[in-house]
Design a protein around this nucleic acid. Structure first.
Length: 192
DNA sequence: TAGGCCATCTGGTCCT
DNA sequence: AGGACCAGATGGCCTA
């Protein structure tokens, strides 16, 4: 969803600088203290559109609509409301962190990174990343076989390595290409 | 207009 | 108790 842009309410007392443009981001960074963001050509929505957890309750929420009782319950409600708003803010921050991680993932997997190309969706990012990992593993395995083959044929034929090419180093190279030893598998969790 | 994608809110569950 | 994580619900925006 490229057009939807929101900006978290900034707690009272914190700077409320205008969002900075960070191309490629879908989500604002305000929640993680890195400033907000809007796509170029998009104006930030009017202030009353922002969900402002710490400042105001969202109109229409169950909390906002709950009828007021006596003073005690009113106080309790206010506290409960603040708790709820804090939980909301945390959850929002958590999702922003998740989106940041997805952005980092997008930046390291090969696909057309271009302003004219639509950003990968979350699910597409995950699937592409999985396929990329499988492809790399396959390529590594092929390379490993090739090194082993070269090692064998070179030795059998008594081939002298050309200058700058260390045949004696092939075994070491092949070793380097071995899968990392991750140790024995972790024992299964004891039944609770 | 329908469908896809997304942000946010919300309540539940689990863990520390 | 508080925080992290999760999934369902809701509503907005965009594209075909």
């Amino acid at each position: 969803m490229e057009g939807r842009r929101t900006w978290d309410g900034v707690p009272l007392g914190e700077s409320h600088s205008p969002p900075q443009s960070v191309p490629g981001r879908r989500t604002p960074l305000g929640a993680v203290g890195l400033g907000g963001f809007y796509m170029q050509g998009h104006q930030p929505p009017p202030q009353h559109c922002y969900p402002t957890d710490e400042n105001q309750p969202e109109p229409g929420t169950s909390y906002a609509q709950r009828p007021l009782g006596d003073g005690k319950s009113k106080q309790k409600m206010r506290q409960g409301k603040n708790v709820r708003l804090n939980i909301n803010a945390r959850e929002r921050r958590r999702m922003h962190d998740l989106n940041d991680a997805l952005d980092e993932l997008r930046s390291v997997i090969p696909y057309a990174h271009s302003p004219s190309v639509r950003k990968l969706s979350k699910i597409a990012t995950l699937l592409l990343a999985k396929n990329y990992i499988l492809m790399q593993a396959s390529a590594l395995e092929e390379l490993r076989r090739l090194v082993a083959y070269l090692q064998g044929t070179a030795t059998a034929a008594g081939i002298v390595a050309p200058p700058g090419f260390d045949l004696a180093g092939l075994p070491a190279t092949a070793k380097l290409l071995q899968p990392p030893n991750l140790g024995p598998p972790a024992p299964p969790d004891p039944p609770s």
